[in-house]
Amino acid sequence: GCFDRHRQPPRPSFTHDDVVRLAATSPFSVNEVEALRELFNKLSSSVLDDGLIHKEELSLALFKTPAGENLFLDRVFDVFDEKKNGVIEFDEFVHALSVFHPYAPLEAKIDFAFSLYDLRQTGYIEREEVRQMVVATLSESGIQMPDETLEAIVDKTFEDADADKDEKISKDEWKAYAIRYPAVLKNMTLPYLKDITTVFPSFIFNTGVED
C-alpha cells in the first residue's frame, strides 16, 4: 500500500560536518574517516541495511560465519556500544577503532583491553574470568588442553600480574603487567588503520575534501 515506503527506517544521515568533527576528535584524517565510512557501510548492511552495526553483523565480520553465542563477541560489542542501545553507530565505531590506531596512546589500549577482559565489569579481572577466556579461546580453535595445563597457565599469569595476591587483577596491576609483557596488547593495534584509505579507496567517489 501507500505506506510501504515508510517501513524501512531511514539511514542515519551523515554530513561532511560530521566527518570533519570526527576527524578533529580522533587520530584519523578527513579522508581516513571517509574510508572508515565505506567499511562501516559494508559492515552495517550485511544483514539489515539500516546504517547501524547489529551484533549479528559484527559476528559475521569477525568470524565470517554466524557465530551464535560467543564470549568475546559480546564483550567487543558491549565496549563498542558506548550508548548501550544495542547497536553500533558510526561515531562509536570510529571512537573504538581510534584505540587500535598504531599512534593511539598506549594508555588507551591498556584501558580498552582491561574493559574487554573485565567480563563482569567489576573493576577487576578475576581469576575465574581469565580461566573462562582461556577456555573460550581454546574451544574456538578446537584445541584440547588438559585441565592441569590450563590451571598452570592461569597460575603463572596470576603470579606475574596479581602483585597483591588477592586473586584478581586491578587496573594498576594490569597496567604494570601490560607494560612488562607488551605481547598481551598485540591485538590492540591494527596496522591497517594507517593505510585505511588504500584499503578502501572507494571513499574517493564520496569524499568532501582532499587531504
Binding site: L116, T157, Y192
Partner: peptide, 25 residues
C-alpha cells in the same frame, strides 16, 4: 612442566578479539 605462554597472550589470539578481521570484507 614448563609454561611457555601466559593466559593473556593466548586470549589475545582469539578470533573474536582480532578486529583486523573487520577489514577482510
Amino acid at each position: 612442566q614448563p609454561v611457555a605462554m601466559n593466559a593473556f597472550e593466548l586470549i589475545s589470539m582469539s578470533k573474536g578479539l582480532n578486529l583486523g578481521n573487520l577489514f577482510d570484507v
